[in-house]
């Protein structure tokens, strides 16, 4: 009755959200008095044995290069098969893009109850109750999973990664992999930037920047902090910034450790995409901007004046200047 953690990867590397899922799954296994194992579909360049440091004893791999592209149907069948072979009772995913494609499918396949968007370890004294984020992060629901096999997907950036010592055994699974029906024609990825959903720090700009030509000061700040850049909906709609930077209810939902909202008023739709951030800093020249109510720190001031100063002070702190 082990815990099986799905390990997501892209371009040969395991994603940070999977280190989180591995830590979470290993802690859950400890709580249940059982062992935690990882499951990797496809191939990576990373050292799989080293994943033992997150608390898993074994990494199961289906070593088949056709699995390096995601086809949810093919994945669900392979994961279901792997869960049966390894005797898994709990399967853990990250609630990232690929997790959203696969977790519920695996649940339906195994007739396992699914809770997506989990934010904490389940309560397992006399039941199995998972706390999940609902109402666009305005509340939590405690959801009981009543089936024998259980599927959980963990909200990214909601569980602290802990790495200790340890090495995991590698086990090659013998699973027949179906030919994919979904063909990946091309991948358009922004090169050399921190992916928004994986970033620890996000620097985001709104209409207060007045036009796309003024984004240089924001990018300087982001670079200094190794942060990802984001924007509000009006900015993306006006094509000042690309759509994949738009965070909010209808854009991307993020939960970084630190979120800088610069020149963004803080409409409720925007907050729905960012209010899982741990620390929110707001800079806005309007003291009545609703974002100040959701912020931890704020400066009432002009972004054109404050942002370059912020960059300068952070450079001082980091000893760059």
């Amino acid at each position: 009755m082990s815990v099986l953690i799905f390990i997501d990867h892209s371009e040969g590397h395991i994603k940070k959200s999977s280190f989180e899922a591995l830590t979470y799954g290993a802690d859950l296994a400890k709580q249940l008095g059982t062992s935690a194992e990882g499951l990797l579909l496809g191939t990576v360049n990373d050292d799989l044995a080293a994943l033992g440091k997150y608390g898993v004893t074994k990494i199961n791999q289906v070593n088949n290069e056709s699995l390096n592209n995601l086809d949810a149907q093919v994945y669900a069948k392979a994961i279901g098969e792997a869960a049966t072979q390894t005797g898994a009772k709990v399967i853990v995913f990250s609630h990232n893009q690929n997790g959203r494609a696969v977790a519920a499918r695996v649940g339906a396949r195994l007739k396992a109850g699914v809770v997506t968007g989990a934010v904490a370890l389940p309560k397992t004294d006399g039941g199995f109750v998972v706390k999940k984020s609902v109402f666009s992060a305005k509340a939590f629901a405690n959801v009981s999973i009543n089936s024998d096999i259980k599927v959980i997907s963990l909200n990214p950036n909601s569980y602290k990664i802990t790495a200790g010592e340890g090495s995991a055994a590698i086990n090659q699974l013998n699973i027949t992999v179906d030919a994919p029906k979904v063909k990946v024609v091309s991948v358009n990825k922004v090169k050399g930037e921190v992916p928004l959903t994986e970033a620890e720090i996000v620097v985001s700009g709104g209409r207060g920047f007045k036009g796309p030509e003024n984004w240089g000061i924001l990018e300087d700040l982001a670079k200094t902090l190794h942060a990802a850049t984001a924007c509000s909906r009006p900015v993306a709609d006006a094509h000042w910034r690309p759509h994949h930077e738009h965070v909010g209810q209808t854009g991307i939902q993020i939960a970084p450790n630190l979120y800088f909202a610069l020149g963004i008023s803080g409409a409720i739709q925007h907050l729905a995409g960012v209010n899982r951030s741990k620390v929110i800093v707001v800079v806005n020249k309007d003291p009545e901007a609703p974002f100040f109510k959701a912020a931890d720190y704020g400066i009432v001031g002009d972004v054109f004046e404050i942002v370059p100063k912020l960059t300068e002070e952070i450079k001082k702190l980091k000893g760059i200047a």
């Binding site: 892209s10 994603k15 029906k181 979904v182 091309s186 991948v187 994986e198 994949h244 991307i252």
Partner: peptide, 13 residues
């Protein structure tokens, strides 16, 4: 399809 930091173009029947 949205992926981390970009998009993937998929084709399916």
């Amino acid at each position: 399809r949205e992926i981390e930091g970009g998009e993937e173009v998929n084709e399916v029947s």
